[in-house]
Structure formats: structure tokens, C-alpha cells
Design a binder for these strands. Structure first.
Lengths: 363, 363
DNA sequence: TTTTAGCACTCTTTAGCCTCGAGTGCTAAC
DNA sequence: GTTAGCACTCGAGGCTAAAGAGTGCTAAAA
């Protein structure tokens, strides 16, 4: 068997493409007769059958059972995505929806990601995922405190990625607003630009020293800062349009669907997946190509959103293996390109103005 | 037909209870023979059949088809929940798990709610929901600004419920930290303790007046405050253990499951449901008792968490109508009781303050 | 050498039919 | 009011037959 891609004749490619398209649409095995009718080929169904048999030998197609039509294999889809898929041209309406999102001018990435993934689910009719990747070593750029009551204040931290997180803190003894102001100054001096595992005993001692009379606050503070850093490190996976999965018959197997839902909820496996991707190119994982075993008859397409060379998020599409890759790829490109623009030019997130999103084309 | 609950004889109650228990466990129709064997009654199966026929006439039971056993109706479950259910005694292990949650000493309500709902899903083996209700008229108690760069700062707002939210803002012209400090003073003077619809033109004019040279910042600020208030108003619904639904055969109907998932994702209907409940008692909605039409063969049990008379959150359990109400009720009581303790005594949320930091964007 | 027509073959799907068994309702006796 | 007995109903499951879709193979044609 020669599996060289270049060995596929034009006709074979055409037939494979036709089968992939038919299978994407209907989900059923595709027979030679169907290919003949829907693809204007100048040959008979017998010839197509021969070609199909060869494509099966080469591993691009398979038969669910002896007298059924052919279904593209994982490998067939891989070849389709790599070499055969054509650029999907978005409708005016689709473009308009993306533009509408763009004009909403949201300033916070979390929100943008969720909205974008909602839209992605709507446009593609698959389930979409918004990912905020794990940040391995976030630090805090700036601390601020907010005085509420004599024994109750809020600690606010701005991370190196621009996230803002806060924690309510309570003190055993009353403190004054002035003490509090001093406290944030000290924090800014001692604990900025340190990741969780860089905070050591000397920092803590320095903190206590600088706090002077208020040294008793130190241990609670360190704990709070530590918690904040850990929260900032955590990745997030938010799923939109889960119900859309169910319209595809491949998910009518309850046990498998249950496993998939469980995995989605766990989010760890997905975060691992994303953390393994590099650069800001679209990734297409078909079936067993992803290490999430529960996704054997699913496909996951995702595109990272980068800023200044760092991955700050990603949008993914999850669906059956027979996914409309052309449309999914185009949608992700369109959306993430626009998000990058949004972040780069027209909003409040900058500081080191960004790189207006890179355009990638599929294929 | 006399439907008076008091008219149910002891034996009828016993039979109904037996059928409910059997159906909760197995999900299948229950026959007279089964009742006879598992309930030590001093009568024959024929008598039980007679009683069951009467219970059916009264509307507590129904037959899926003529030669099947009986299944409790919605009304049957309602009667069971109101009058028949016995207190479930938690195992030491279950209590230990709840206590472990308690000892985690989280300070932010959001986090507590999510963790508690995770635990609820684990303990009951149903799907759990953490709800942060819509707050109809939140106001901002305190503003704070954080200077990042000459044209980039963060606006932080502490709401009347204790939530902290922030927004990145960018200015066209550079501003100094002193300007920024003044800005937060002005905001605290003009825009605190106002809900979104109480902010009127005079406020805006006063803001501009007080800002003096920096009046050009006013419109962006008002917009940001408005956005913050709206975000604070929004309710949230977070689902845990969705995969658990699928183990119950009532959810093997794909179309219905799809509708349910869609509704869960929408969250509006659920928030409406919660907003209609009053006080801090457990609510049990069986089948069509909830107005969510998609839940006709489901049940929803939820318990609000109140603090100083205000509902600050809720935990709910969603499952099939034949839910183990005894266990679910006990679990919710145990959990929410402990959460109230957590908030009341031992943490940083006091002073009528609720919710903790939401982080926004990276970027 | 490649293509094509024809045909036998395979395998799934569906419908119909039957039996089995669970569970009931009714009647008549206790 | 309770019980034993029995006929009846209805779904589940298994078996068979027919239909249909699609293939692989062979032999002839291009």
C-alpha cells in the first residue's frame, strides 16, 4: 500500500471530497451511486466503486459493514482538512453578526471570549468553548486596598495579564484608612512581580518589618496574596451551546455523551490540550488525534488568541468528527481575527499596544 | 372522587410510600406483588390491588398501560413530599464532606456557591445548580481607581452586596495619579448608593462640574459605571454534574434532553423561577409545578441562602421527578445551613456584604 | 490498460407474528 | 372488608421473511 498523499489522483481526490461532503451533511455512509449523481464525473458507478475500494485500501475510507456505503476515516478527514477543504465564504449576515460583536466594544477579555464563543456556537451550530489558559507564572503588578469598615477591607490585585481580582479581609483589631494606605504601599514594594512560588520567607519577613505596628496583619495578607495568585493561575473553560451536540446522531449513545459531558465539566483535560498547542495557528484535532479518549468520534477545532506573543485565550468548536470544517475554520478565523483587533486597537486593555490580530487562512 | 388528603387511610399511605420508594429506586412501574413482599402488610395482593386502584382514582397513581404496575403521579409525589417523606439521616462520611467544605474557609460567596453545588451534586448524584439571583437594584457603595499608565487606569467598584467589579479604562489624554485620586473622590461623592435607573442627568452634570478640568472623562465614566451596575444586577446560574442527568432513563429521550440543556444554558427561566420564591425555605417543584415547560418529568429542589433577610444565593438540585427527595432535602439543608454559618461568623463577608471578587479580562 | 455493464452476493432494516410473563380487574367465596 | 382464582391485556423479546441498498467480481468493450 502506498499512502503517499501525492499519489492520490485528481479523480480520487474529487471522489473523496464528494464523500466527505455528503457524509458531513447527512452522517450516513455514502454509496457510489450518490457520488455519481452529485458529482458530474465522466465515468460510471463501477469505476467509482473501484476507486472507492482503492481509497479504502489506502485508509481514507471505511465500510461500517460489508454492504453499506463508505464513510471517511479519521485519516480521510485529516487529508480533507489538510489538502482538500475549500475556503468557506461567509454570508453577509454572518459577517454582520461578527461585526455586531465587534462593535459591542467590551473591554474585558473574559466577557469577549464568552460572547465570541456564544456567537461561534450560533454561527456553526456546534458546541463552542471559550478557554482562558492556565498561566503558569502570573504575578501581581499592583495592589490596592479599599477601606470599608474599621475591621473590614478589600484587597485588590492587578495581575501581569491585566486581570483584576479582589478579596475581602477582616482584621481582629480595628485599623485606620491610613494604616490601610500604608499597607498597600508596602505590598506594592514587597510582593509585586512575584509568582506564587517565588514568595519566600524573606519576603514575608520584609513585609512584617515594613508593616511595623501592623505586622500582625502580615500572615493573613500573605495567605490572601497567595490565594489570589493561585486563582489568577487557574485556567477556565466555558461551554456554549451544549444542546447543539445532541442534534447529531453520533451523540445519541448516552453512555458516551455522559463521558463527554463529564470531561467537559472537568476542564482539566481540555486545558492540557490547549496548553500543548503552540503559536496562534488553528489546531484541528480529529478523533483520536486528541488525547482525550472520550472524543474518539468527535473533532475539536480551536484557535488561540495571542497578544504580544502570549496566548491570552482561545475559542474552540466541538462537534462530531464529520464537522463542517470549512465553515468552522472560517468562523474561527473571522472571530478571533476580530477579537485581536478589538484588543489591539480600540479598547482599554492596552499598554504596549498590540499587534492587531494575525490573519491565518485555512488549508 | 374525594381528594382530601386526610382521607387517605394509614394503609393507603403505607402503600403509596412503598410505591414511591420503589419507583424512586428503580424507575419502573411497581406492582402489587412487589409492595406485598417489601412491605410487611397483613393483607393479600388482591387487597393491595384494590387499594392501588383507589389511589389511582384519587389521582395519586397512574398506569403507563393497562397491564403494567403503577407509577406515582405528580400529585402522588407532591403528597409524598408534603406528608410522607421521612428525614434522611446523613452518613458520617457525608457529614464529613460537608464539614470539609466548611473548613475550606473561602471568603467569596461565588466560590462558596460553586463549591457547595459541586458537593451537592456529588452527595445526591443529581445535577446541582448554584444560583446568584438577579439583584433588582444594586448600587455601588464605594469607588476606587488604580493608576496603571498615563492613559490607562482601572475603575473598581464595591457594590452594596459586597461584590467587587472592575473595568479597564483608557483616556485620550494622559492623566496624573493625582487627577485619578480626585476622580475617585468625585465618584464617591456623586454616584454612590444609586441604582442604574437612579442615575440621571443632574448626576452627570454634577460629575462634570466637580471634575473641573477633567470633565472630558465624565461620559466614559458614566458609561463604565452604568455597565458595572448592569453587570452587578445580573443573576448567574452555574451547573455542576450535568453528566449525572444522563444516568436516569427519563433523560434518554434526546429531544427532551436537548430542550432541557438549552433551557439550562439560557438561565433566564431559572432565574425567574428563583426570583419568585420567597423566604429562605426549601422549594420543591415537581414536574409541571414549575413554569419551565421542559421540566415536565423533572423535579427541581432549591434552597435560598439568606443573610440579614436578603437572598444572596441559592443551591438547587435538578433531577428526574422520581427524585430521592429525602436525601436531597437533607443535603440542601445541611449544606445551606453551613454556608449561612460560614458567612455569619467565620469569614470576611460580614456587614451585610455578600459576594466577592469577579475578575475580568486578561490582556 | 482502463472502463463499463451486469449480476450475484451480503448485510441491514423493517414488518409481521408469535410466545412469554407481568400485572391487572373482576367475580365469587370467606 | 378481604381473599383466592382466573381471564384478560399489553409490552418485551425473539424469529422469519421480504425489501433495499450497495458492493465485488467477471467478462466484454474501448
Amino acid at each position: 500500500m502506498d499512502h503517499d498523499k501525492s499519489e492520490l489522483s485528481e479523480r480520487k481526490k474529487q471522489i473523496l471530497k464528494a464523500i466527505v461532503h455528503a457524509h458531513i451533511e447527512g452522517g450516513e455512509p455514502v454509496g457510489s451511486k450518490y457520488v455519481l449523481e452529485n458529482q458530474h464525473l465522466t465515468c460510471s458507478s463501477a469505476t467509482i466503486r473501484n476507486e472507492m475500494a482503492e481509497l479504502e485500501n489506502m485508509g481514507y475510507l471505511e465500510q461500517p459493514h460489508a454492504s453499506a456505503g463508505r464513510v471517511p476515516t479519521e485519516r480521510g478527514y485529516r487529508f480533507y482538512v489538510d489538502s482538500l477543504v475549500e475556503h468557506y465564504v461567509m454570508t453577509a449576515n454572518e459577517i454582520a453578526q461578527i461585526n455586531r460583536l465587534l462593535h459591542a466594544k467590551m473591554s474585558e477579555l473574559d466577557q469577549i471570549l464568552v460572547e465570541a464563543s456564544n456567537l461561534a456556537a450560533n454561527l456553526t451550530n456546534y458546541t463552542a468553548i471559550a478557554i482562558k489558559p492556565r498561566a503558569s507564572s502570573v504575578s501581581i503588578n499592583k495592589f490596592e486596598t479599599i477601606y470599608l469598615e474599621p475591621d473590614h477591607y478589600i484587597l485588590v490585585a492587578v495581575s501581569s495579564t491585566g486581570s483584576v481580582k479582589s478579596k475581602h479581609l477582616q482584621t481582629k483589631q480595628p485599623i485606620t484608612p491610613e494604616t490601610l494606605a500604608n499597607l498597600s504601599d508596602v505590598l506594592n514594594m514587597v510582593l509585586t512581580n512575584l509568582s506564587a512560588d517565588q514568595i519566600t520567607l524573606p519576603h514575608m519577613m520584609k513585609l512584617e518589618a515594613l508593616l511595623g505596628n501592623d505586622a500582625h496583619l502580615a500572615s493573613d495578607l500573605i495567605k490572601a496574596v497567595y490565594d489570589l495568585l493561585n486563582e489568577l493561575d487557574e485556567g477556565e473553560v466555558k461551554v456554549s451551546g451544549l444542546d447543539r451536540l445532541l442534534q447529531y446522531p453520533e451523540y445519541s449513545d448516552v453512555a458516551q455523551l455522559q463521558a463527554l459531558l463529564g470531561t467537559l465539566e472537568n476542564k482539566e483535560e481540555f486545558l492540557d490540550l490547549f496548553s500543548k498547542s503552540e503559536g496562534d495557528d488553528v489546531s484541528v484535532l480529529i478523533g483520536s488525534e486528541s488525547e482525550v479518549k472520550v472524543m474518539n468520534n468527535s473533532a475539536l477545532v480551536f484557535k488561540p488568541i495571542t497578544k504580544d506573543g502570549k496566548t491570552i485565550g482561545a475559542i474552540g468548536i466541538l462537534g462530531p468528527r464529520r464537522m463542517d470544517y470549512a465553515k468552522v475554520l472560517a468562523t474561527l478565523e473571522g472571530l478571533t481575527g476580530n477579537i485581536a483587533d478589538l484588543i489591539g486597537s480600540n479598547n482599554q486593555l492596552t499598554g504596549g499596544k498590540g499587534n492587531g490580530g494575525e490573519q491565518k487562512d485555512d488549508g
